[in-house]
């Protein structure tokens, strides 16, 4: 067992090393200094407690969105809609936060968690329903719905929810939430309750899949839906339920970003966390520890994206190239691919 674990670690290190070398070549071609970029990134993220805590903050939404891909993938569903589900979770949580302003925090926070879950969940369940009824494949619906969700948020944030506070109203954002609606932070950093919630959900994800009858059924559907149907598993119900739960988890990413970090809803607040969740889940092969490790690595990649934009004028979107290189290496090497799946 420890030997297996070590060889898995060695392969991850190998992938990342090759990817970083390839990305350095890309940066070099773009006329940037890759060595300086990597040193800056290390200084900014891992060399101080503050930098490390910021990586944990970045990692939080990625954990949620990765589980939101990993869970349906066990049932043979491909959820590429984490980004949209995240926006809808943030949207419904915001509705709660600005509508019920006089709840005590002990009620308010669980209530907003519930709303965030429902917002993302219903959005994803729609795609699950269309798939279960045999209308459209969930891959294409979840992808298209990613483009609708930010418009829903935009409609409210530019419209009836727009802040009227002097100063704040210059930006498309809602008014600040009351203190009781803000998720607590810890250790004098921006690490917030969302992180621990994500860890809890990661544990539940593992527990349900490996230790319960539900998990067995879900994996059965993923393995052979026809056989699962013959064995009396309500396949259609499970397809919709799994999409609902997955979307709900992605919704928590949006809900916690909004209530813990921004304290208000802003248009276009996600830099693509939903898409990266897909990448993480794929790289981790859906394994809980892999999701944890890969979320951490991708959080550093995201931090470096914002950093290099400032220090070297590399557009933030350039981190997509690094992510593509990582995916490419995994897909190219059949022995790595077997490890991941």
């Amino acid at each position: 067992m420890p030997k297996n674990w070590l060889s898995a670690l060695a392969r991850y290190v190998f992938i990342l090393t090759v990817a970083l070398i390839a990305y350095a070549a890309v940066l070099l071609l773009a006329g940037k200094n890759p060595i300086l970029a990597y040193i800056d990134t290390f200084d900014f993220t891992l060399s101080s407690w503050y930098g490390f805590s910021e990586v944990i903050v970045r990692m939080t939404p990625l954990l949620f969105t990765a589980i939101a891909v990993a869970l349906p993938s066990r049932a043979g569903l491909i959820n590429v809609g984490g980004e949209g589900q995240l926006y809808l979770g943030a949207w419904l949580a915001t509705w709660g936060a600005i509508t019920f302003t006089n709840l005590p925090a002990s009620v308010f926070i669980p209530f907003l968690v519930l709303l965030g879950f429902i917002g993302g969940g219903v959005w994803a369940a729609l795609a699950g329903f269309l798939r279960a009824k045999g209308y459209v494949n969930e891959t294409i619906t979840t992808l298209l719905m990613n483009y609708i969700a930010p418009l829903v948020v935009g409609y409210f944030v530019y419209g009836s929810w727009r802040s009227r506070e002097p100063g704040a109203s210059a930006f498309p954002q809602t008014a600040a939430f009351v203190q009781e609606a803000r998720m607590p932070r810890f250790f004098q950093t921006r690490i917030h309750l969302g992180f621990f919630l994500a860890l809890l959900i990661l544990f539940i994800y593992w527990f349900v899949l490996e230790k319960t009858k539900w998990g067995l059924k879900i994996k059965g559907i993923g393995g052979n839906p026809e056989a699962a149907k013959r064995m009396g598993i309500e396949v259609n119900f499970y397809l919709i339920a799994v999409m609902f739960v997955a979307g709900g988890i992605a919704g928590l990413a949006g809900m916690s970003e909004v209530t813990a970090l921004h304290g208000r809803l802003r248009a276009g607040f996600s830099p693509g966390y939903g898409f990266v969740g897909f990448l993480i889940s794929w790289l981790a092969g859906g394994r809980p520890l892999g999701i944890l490790a890969m979320s951490f690595v991708l959080a550093i990649v995201f931090s470096s994206g914002s950093l290099l934009q400032i220090t070297q004028g590399v557009p933030f979107a350039a981190i997509n190239v690094l992510m593509a290189i990582i995916l490419f290496i995994v897909l190219m090497k059949p022995n790595l691919r077997r490890l991941m799946s």
Partner: peptide, 17 residues
């Protein structure tokens, strides 16, 4: 699907650069 998304990520990043 994963191969296609690789190209999507790559194109998004390269076009921005």
């Amino acid at each position: 699907l994963a191969s296609g998304l690789t190209v999507m990520f790559l194109g998004t990043g390269l076009s921005a650069m």
